[in-house]
Write a protein that binds this DNA or RNA. Structure first.
Lengths: 232, 232
DNA sequence: CGGTTTTTTCACCGCTTTTTCACCGCGCAA
DNA sequence: TTGCGCGGTGAAAAAGCGGTGAAAAAACCG
């Protein structure tokens, strides 16, 4: 879904300068040239983000900020020539999420836009492959939707494998990470844990799909979901 | 509840300058002086906000940023002498929520802290599940509409569990939060309190529905009716 | 001050996990 | 073929953890 950005600035030059850059990043752009038009446009466009100038006819930036905040939590970045401490504090305390002083570097504006938009999302730190879901924040592993109970060591080893998913991890590495550096030679531990993990996680423990043995090298966690995302 | 802020900076002068100002605003302040300590402190303190310097021994600010982002959405404000466009963009794209160039105006920092914390807040003073209602603002717990009398320690432990509801909290974490860091090994306390809480809150204390034990890991407060099969 | 509640401490029990050890089977090279 | 290294299997011993109960100590309150 394309994200929509509303630019509110009475200087057509600014709008003209920013708009193409935003479009190039894949945003949809709308513009308004004074405070009242801004509120109308806000209701109509329902933008994901507002770029707001402070000095404007009809209704100042602060006023626009307050009005928007009364009805929505849409992020607002104030962009203004006014760089005084008081202006910045006032804007932020009236609902602005960020404040950028003109003249600004375009790439910084874009980065701040990304940062502010990123916050709204609730990223799921979930690792999924086929019938396995690993929720690293809640320390929970689901297999076909059913929770699988793992012991601390099992979970730690799994985490180590998943951290290097699709890459090979040696038994030595695993032992050092999970048990500690002084256990570097106790690679026997790993055998047992790997087996228990396979019994608990693999559809057919005798022919593993996820926890693959790379002979004479180590183990590899196979992420079957080949979905590779391409961030901006 | 007091909001906790973690300052990460290797310059004691900066820490000394900022800390009192933050305390005066009613924040709890913790500090770490290099990247590795920062991550350890982060896990222990679980701050609501991180103030992060970029240039540090052990592990740079960007690295800290990434590590924190892997496990949490806690807001991060980078505070650095490096004001170059590339530094700002890099930090923001690696998970920072805001970027402030040193030297900065204290009131601006405070305003940006307020702005960033304001977003994160999703106030839900009432937690309800099945026949339990927990009013975190009034420190009151209702069970089937009837108030349950909890001792201060019982309530503190319950609050700690509820704060991480559906996530696992270790006995060590609970003890450190409720009794203080110096009690980190006195996990025996927790056993007793958990038992009393179960007696007071659970319909069937022998088979808990809310305060679940995650064996060898810790405890979890179960919000939704996430049916977890348990052998009887 | 005395009585009550709350917190701390301790010992025991049963269960799960971890560790340890011996053995098996396969592939590979001498 | 035989010997060897590597990884899988199985089971039993050891260790650790959590639940329980109860009593001592401390805090609270009129």
């Amino acid at each position: 879904m394309k994200q929509r950005i509303l630019i509110v600035d009475d200087d057509p030059g600014i709008v003209a300068a920013i708009t193409p850059a935003l479009r190039a990043q894949g945003y949809e752009v709308a513009a308004a040239h004074d405070g009242e038009l801004a509120l109308a446009a806000f209701r109509q466009v329902e933008p994901h983000l507002v770029l707001l100038d402070l000095v404007m006819p009809k209704l100042g930036g602060i006023g626009v900020c307050q009005q928007i905040r009364q009805q929505s939590a849409t992020p607002i970045i104030v962009v203004s020539v006014k760089g005084a401490e008081a202006d910045i504090v006032t804007a932020l305390d009236n609902g602005a999420d960020d404040y950028l002083v003109k003249p600004f570097r375009l790439s910084e504006l874009l980065a701040r836009i990304r940062a502010v938009l990123r916050r709204g999302r609730t990223p799921q730190p979930l690792i999924e492959c086929a019938d396995l879901v690993i929720d690293t924040t809640r320390r929970i592993v689901l297999r076909q939707g059913q929770p699988v109970s793992l012991t601390p060591i099992e979970y730690a080893v799994l985490a180590e494998l998943v951290a290097h998913r699709n890459g090979v991890v040696t038994a030595r590495q695993i032992v050092q990470r999970v048990w500690g550096p002084q256990y570097a030679d106790a690679t026997d531990y790993v055998k047992g844990v790997i087996r228990r993990l396979r019994v608990k996680l693999e559809p057919d423990p005798a022919h593993p799909r996820y926890i693959i043995t790379e002979p004479h090298v180590g183990y590899r966690f196979n992420d079957a979901s080949g979905a590779v995302s391409s961030p901006s």
